[in-house]
């Protein structure tokens, strides 16, 4: 039997989970939760590239999710763009913005990046809250229908709304994971991981550290943006919360909880933190308490994250 590469193994596990889990859904509502996990997983995959591969941090990636989301709300009505193109427009704006913001910030180290990204996220959410005439302010704004489900129906594939978004988001997550895994083993990805290992040594082998950091920042911004677009399109509504500070924190926490170094681990983390509020109805009140606690505990005791630690244990037992 040919040996499975880590990449195909990850993709197979992911695809199998997406395909099989619906058989165990007690009700249609669970499709919605599944789709939410996939969207969060997508955003967190971007964090894996930035934090897990390149070792950089962002506390403002929700800002890019906000841009992606509001692009889907605004571009169709104001520019007459099809919602699917609005997703692309949002991603482009996010990428360009990440480039412009990242250029000065990424020349410097950790703390500055954290603060500047934090400020950037707050700025975006401030604009979304304050520019009422355009964004509807804190109450949010309606988002047009993507229209893909109707198209599929014409082709004879009749899915409920929940089913459609479940499988559609699952597919996008698979593509996102595939891209992130491609990057991992590619020359560009190696450069990112090298600078994570030692910035000084990365320089001596000719890696333009500032440039590749910027690449990682832009790529992860595009992930967050697309995730934000998907949330908006699925809910047909969006509020500035998507760009809020707590959403940025959620993304980072999901990534480090599952294991920022691995795509599957991070998606696993996204799954746990998305399910938690569903399982505990009182969770809403404790959300910040729990998120903060998880961030501290994981960084102190399980720096690799949950999934890699579990796998290591299992492997250790097997040998």
């Amino acid at each position: 039997m040919p040996k499975l590469t880590a990449k195909s193994a990850t993709l197979l596990v992911l695809a199998a989970l997406i395909a099989v889990t619906p058989f165990f859904f007690p009700s249609g509502y669970y499709y919605r939760i599944g789709a939410l996990i996939f969207v969060n997983g997508l955003a967190v995959t971007g964090i894996v590239i930035l934090t897990g591969y390149a070792g950089q941090i962002s506390l403002g990636h929700a800002g890019f999710a906000g841009i992606g989301g509001y692009a889907c709300a605004l571009a169709p009505t104001h520019l007459g763009l099809h919602p699917s193109l609005a997703v692309v427009l949002g991603a482009v704006i996010s990428g360009v913005l990440a480039y412009l913001v990242g250029r000065p910030i990424l020349r410097l180290k950790g703390y500055y990046l954290a603060v500047a990204t934090l400020g950037f996220g707050i700025l975006v959410s401030m604009v979304l809250n304050n520019e009422r005439r355009l964004t509807g302010g804190p109450d949010g704004i309606a988002v047009p229908e993507l229209g893909l489900r109707g198209l599929l129906k014409d082709w004879g594939l009749d899915l409920t709304n929940g089913e459609f978004w479940y499988f559609f988001c699952g597919l996008v997550l698979l593509i996102g994971a595939w891209i992130a895994l491609n990057l991992h083993q590619s020359p560009s990805g190696r450069a990112l991981r090298a600078l994570h290992g030692s910035e000084i040594a990365a320089g001596t082998v000719g890696i333009d550290v500032a440039r590749v950091k910027l690449q990682a920042f832009v790529i992860s911004a595009v992930y967050a943006s697309v995730a934000g677009s998907l949330v908006a399109l699925q809910n047909k509504f969006i509020t500035p919360d998507v760009a809020g500070f707590m959403h940025s924190i959620e993304m980072v926490t999901m990534a480090v909880l599952g294991g920022a170094g691995s795509v599957l681990g991070a998606i696993f983390g996204a799954g746990i933190l998305t399910l938690l509020p569903q399982a505990l109805t009182v969770f809403a009140e404790y959300e910040q308490l729990v998120l903060g606690l998880v961030m501290m505990l994981v960084m102190i005791f399980l720096r690799e994250g949950l999934l890699p630690s579990i796998l290591r244990k299992l492997r250790g037992r097997g040998e």
Partner: peptide
């Protein structure tokens, strides 16, 4: 001795935790 990124996440975690605790 942890990397800077870990320390950032820890202190941000402390910040979020204190906010959550103050809410309660």
């Amino acid at each position: 001795g942890a990397p800077v990124v870990s320390l950032i996440i820890i202190t941000i975690g402390a910040s979020v935790f204190l906010q959550g605790a103050a809410q309660l």
